[in-house]
Design a protein around this nucleic acid. Structure first.
Lengths: 111, 111
DNA sequence: CCTATTATTCAAATAATTTTGAAATATGCA
DNA sequence: TGCATATTTCAAAATTATTTGAATAATAGG
């Protein structure tokens, strides 16, 4: 995968509000949450929310669908998957020490 | 783990040069690489290298040890582990779709 | 002590991001 | 159509990050 897209995705998540937005969307699931509702939850203005959602969208981490007057945002599974695959496989080369022990853990369970 | 530390780590990696530096250090292993040698490899000035290495260091992603006139930099295993653990477990809640298929893959191998 | 090498610090300049508030767009409903 | 709601766009201001080059520190070796 294109390294500049990885940088863009990392930058998108590298912000207090945006990381919280993404976390919230993951918890909310694929049906999504209207922008205004996210804004209320996070505690920022509608304008600020649009700005941050645009960043996440451009980075390929969220998707949006209009539903009447609302625009529902949901996590974009493929974008996040690519980021985590890059970080664990390409960047950290699958080393269990670096990869958060996931590989280690699951292997242990398998024994 | 502290969310602001996660944001700092993400921001540290969210830069073309720094992501390449970190990748290079992972490949080089725990013995580390002198700052100047990294700079030569990446193709940036010594001053620029100091700036970026400081960012990575402050974010807890690399460690440094002086060896004579050289300062060797190596990946800081614990910092990266914490970041990836956060992203996969806290943020993405271990959902295989989001987590880069690592969990899925290893489970499949185990069957 | 002197010099060469390696790396960092500093301050100034430049560039990029984020915030703010007003205006605009899109939709639903009376 | 006219009005209310949800969201986005826009431009200006504020903030933060990055680059640049000169100066400074740390060390090895003569």
């Amino acid at each position: 995968m294109d390294e500049s897209k990885i940088v863009a995705a990392l930058a998108a998540l590298a912000h207090e509000h945006r990381l919280r937005i993404f976390r919230l969307l993951v918890r909310a699931g694929p049906s999504g949450v209207p922008a205004g509702q996210i804004a209320e939850h996070i505690g920022i203005s509608a304008t600020g929310m649009s700005f941050h959602l645009k960043e996440l969208d451009h980075a390929g981490l969220v998707t949006s669908t209009r539903q009447g007057r609302f625009v529902r945002y949901a996590p974009h599974v493929e974008g996040m998957r690519q980021l985590l695959t890059y970080l664990t496989e390409d960047c950290c080369r699958g080393q269990p020490e670096l990869c958060g022990g996931i590989i280690k853990k699951v292997r242990a369970v398998c024994k």
